[in-house]
Simulated scan of single mutants.
Amino acid sequence: MSDAYITRIAKFLPNEPVSNDEMEAYLGYINGKPSKSKALVLRNNGIKSRYYALQKDGTATHTNAEMAALAVTRLFEKNTSEIQDVDLLSCATSSPDQLMPSHGSMVHGYLKDAGSIEVVSPSGVCCAGMHAFKYAYMSVKLGEKQKAVACASERLSPVLRSDQFEDEVQQLLKLEKNPYLAFEKDFLRWMLSDGAGAFLVESEPNTSGISLKIDWIEGCSYANEQEACMYMGADKLEDGSLKSYKDFKSEQVQEHSVFSIKQDVKLLGEKIVKLGFAKLKDILVRKGISMDEVSYFLPHLSSYFFEGKIEDFCNENGMPISKEKWYTNLVTKGNVGSASIYMMLEEVFYSGALKKGEKILLAVPESSRFSYMFCMLTVC
């Protein structure tokens, strides 16, 4: 089998960063009142700025597929004709612009200079970006592809806007109930960000400068054991099952904000760290790897609240990670879902700090139904 390397990384962030104070100017006030939970959530998640692919009046500035295509295009800025040599496009998102065609096909549609190539569209949430990456990695490693692009992108800002919840709030008012949005829906409004990232994966490293050899990528799901924790296009029933938007009447979809993105916060706190990082320990033991060998640890965090939880778990389970090795850009980029790990690695890759032989560990937890992806890279 061939080796596989990340040889280039690019990202695209729409418009200017949005500060905490500006958020409701973009997302709006529900029932004309400031959110009760905003200050609490922001204090815990530690995010100071994020990006939205929309203007303050809600007008879209970019589609999801367009942002992904712009990130891909930036991989080939120095030689624009090189995009014609790409033989695979693997595109992930949790927030496609439409149900059909596939997200990957829509991204390919923006890449007018690319050839007629294989396109795949892994679905999911945060782990989807790693699934897209793994498909590209395996295709190159098998020798079936020579120049593969993996990308991940998110555009969730439109479903975070207040007008998405107005019918639900008006229904609550009619019923003389508290018209404030339920915490499980309001929680993620202050967490999520838009943007895209892309990797170029090749069978040979760069002839000058650094590359990242992909040592392995492993993942697991606990959906057979755990109920859904984050969901969209469905409502959670008392027995923990999900009722699809397809099974609601059209007026109920609006009245219950079924297409909002929701988080079971209690379940998140109980499960997200201990399930995934117990699996990481198993992987490291099986591969005979010590955390001492890792030079950079890049965990995808939805909130800095979990940073200490991960550190405590790793310390208590014999795999301590020195804080000098940690890197995250959550504070400045927000949670960009499946694209977050791409943006983090892009910053490290072009930092000028990497030395050949150093190892980078990527960790991506996904709370939707508790899935995890881990990856080891070696600087070469």
Results as ranks from 00 to 15, higher is better:
I6A: 00
I9Q: 02
I30L: 08
K38R: 13
L42P: 08
N45A: 08
A53D: 02
A53V: 04
L54A: 08
K56T: 14
R74D: 07
F76V: 00
L88Y: 10
L99F: 15
V107N: 01
G115P: 08
E118K: 11
V119K: 06
V120P: 10
S139E: 12
K145D: 03
Q146C: 14
A152D: 09
S162Q: 06
L172G: 01
N178P: 09
Y180G: 00
A182H: 14
L188I: 11
L188P: 04
S193Y: 10
A196Q: 02
P205F: 02
S208D: 15
S211W: 08
W216P: 07
A223C: 14
Q226K: 11
E227F: 11
Y231E: 03
Y231D: 01
A234T: 02
E238H: 05
L242M: 08
Y245Q: 07
K246M: 15
F248H: 07
S257P: 05
V258F: 09
D264G: 05
L275Y: 14
G276D: 06
F277A: 02
K279R: 14
G288F: 13
E293L: 14
S302K: 03
E311H: 14
D312F: 10
D312W: 11
G318T: 08
K333D: 09
L345A: 05
S351H: 13
E358S: 06
S367L: 09
S367E: 08
R369N: 09
C375V: 04
M376P: 02
T378C: 06
T378W: 04
V379R: 05
